[in-house]
Design a protein around this nucleic acid. Structure first.
Lengths: 344, 344
DNA sequence: CTGAAAGCGCTTACAG
DNA sequence: CTGAAAGCGCTTACAG
């Protein structure tokens, strides 16, 4: 069972013979080694073209100790993974940097503990040269384990427990704070918060930013309900908030997706946005501009985060010693109709 | 630049020495070869545990001719890829079958022609044992090229031009036809269609199903506008249809996402659904149940499609000869409020 | 059950 | 610039 037959493909030897040179010379052509005569190079290239030769990746990896690929691990249930507009932008940024270095981006989306265990073996087996991890819940042991095995690892988003890991994050707390301050600046006084999961740093930090802003304004920062960053959870959280404090006049929601759900709940409850309740979200994803009314949102430099993650992990891969490094990127507000109008 | 240093890891030799056995015996333990004494097995397992040994993937691949991994290629702009609820379900189905065979699922999302070229080299380099491709536009040359190199390939969705490729598809034409017949059965007479891209088989087949149903009813099947399966395009297409034929009383939309956009356009135009216009979509994704009103939709067995793709490619990988094989899966209607109510 | 040895298909100092 | 040769870290008949 599960026996995959071996497919014989063209070998470097065949190309060298066809071109009338040694294997070494032929190899130099494919490794872009400059010490090859033009004649030899041409002969090898022609032979390769004719035979349809592509170097065997395993053999090359074994000889060089590199795979020229970088793994990106997104341990999200695929449903969430694909629904969240955060990931495509991040991946685009990562891919930009990798492509420039001719490195292959390889994605993994483990769906269970068993998946993750197998993946750890796979990655530890050096199938990739470096690993990027995003969207970790709680304290996922994977990045730490890989790093201990000497595999260069960079985490997207601050890991909850470990401080010896390299990571790139946006300043979630500052973002949450400025979003909340924006609402206060509009004259709102009963400001609620729909937070992300409490076991995710992005969720916690935005929440802490909210609390900090309210405390600084001398207000209570406990009108908080948690969601999972998804649409449904935002709707449900908004309903709970309205039940708890019908007179709330503003809400800071920790993701655009949840905010879309919150808008639906507000509309169902007969509240006008922004007249009755001002709303500001987090992410500034494309959907922020398409809701009714368009959502104010905290803009994250997600592509830049991806680029920075890739740059960082390549630097780690190039170094002999792994010195953890962390990069924090700033946010800015994108103000739209959901929070723009004054109260009266 | 781009030099990734080689990280020395524990080798099988070290484990064998530590365990006091030969490399061959140690190897047998990791390949689950039964011809190993219990004592030797224990010693090797302890040594491996102690040293943190994981077999080097490249070396193993080179020796066995297999990588024990299967690639899934989704050549979509990542934006679309992640927005479409189709992919996560498909991947879940694929992963189910691969996991049972202890095969690693590896994802690729090439974003450009250059990405695809590099990916072809990568896959041709035998980094994976088999390849699954989905969501091909027009006549993507990738699956054909890989197949010619002897790599087992299965395409998700019927390829537009090649008939020598193995594929798994849902019966899009029958689905489009029964959706349209459902609308006709409700007494609707001016039935429009928002089609997918004309260069994608799924788009064409659903459209042909629509035409077939109308022709059979003796009606005109030319009230058609095309979109790209995405939200925005559905909204725009609906607007064009309303402009072309204000009196239309039903519309069959080729995807749930486009239907969501169409609902918005209908609402903006003051049309009630289903009273003025009955709507039925295609996909029956989770969003179908969350729209206002909930969307009737053609249900595709997407997980099963994923499973079938994986099964098929493993069969091809196990065979010495590649005999193209095609599997067509049936659809069914999920009727909800958007098309359920009668006209009066 | 076990080990010595060949071989998987490359790369890369080394010597010319 | 070129080639012979060693080596990358495994697996697997083969002989015992």
């Amino acid at each position: 069972m599960g026996a995959l037959t071996r497919n014989s493909a063209i070998t470097l030897d065949a190309v060298a013979r066809q071109a009338g040179v040694s294997r070494a010379t032929a190899s130099r052509v494919f490794t872009s080694n400059p010490r090859v005569s033009d004649d030899a190079r041409r002969a090898v290239e022609q032979a390769a073209e004719k035979l349809g030769y592509v170097p065997n990746g395993a053999a090359r990896s074994l000889a060089t100790g590199r795979s020229d690929s970088v793994g990106v691990v997104i341990p999200e249930p695929t449903g969430r993974l694909f629904a969240d507009p955060f990931f495509p932008r991040l991946i685009r940024g990562i891919n930009e940097v990798l492509t420039a270095q001719r490195l292959q981006l390889v994605l993994f989306a483990p769906q269970s503990g068993a998946d993750e265990d197998r993946l750890e073996q796979y990655l530890a087996g050096r199938h990739v040269d470096a690993v990027l991890l995003v969207s970790l819940h709680g304290s996922d042991p994977l990045p730490g384990r890989l790093q201990e095995r000497g595999i260069p690892v960079v985490v997207g988003g601050r890991p909850l427990e470990r401080s010896d890991l390299s990571f790139v994050d946006v300043d979630n707390q500052a973002g949450g704070r400025s979003a909340t301050e924006h609402l206060l600046g509009q004259g709102r006084r009963v400001v609620a918060h729909i937070a992300g999961p409490a076991d995710m740093p992005a969720g916690r930090d935005r929440w802490f930013g909210y609390r900090a802003a309210l405390e600084r304004a001398g207000l209570d920062g406990d009108l908080v309900e948690h969601g999972d960053f998804g649409y449904q959870s935002g709707q449900a959280a908004m309903e709970r908030l309205l039940a708890r404090r019908p007179q709330l006049d503003a809400v800071f929601v920790a993701s655009d997706l949840m905010a879309t759900g919150a808008l639906r709940a507000l509309s169902a409850a007969g509240r006008r946005v922004p007249d009755d309740v001002a709303v500001i979200a987090f992410d500034d994803s494309p959907i922020a501009g398409t809701t009714q009314p368009p959502l104010s949102s905290v803009r994250q430099p997600i592509e830049e985060m991806g680029r920075e993650m890739a740059r960082l992990v390549l630097r780690l891969a190039g170094a002999s010693h792994q010195v953890p490094r962390q990069v924090i990127l700033g946010t800015e507000l994108a103000i739209r109709a959901s929070s723009a109008a004054g109260r009266r």
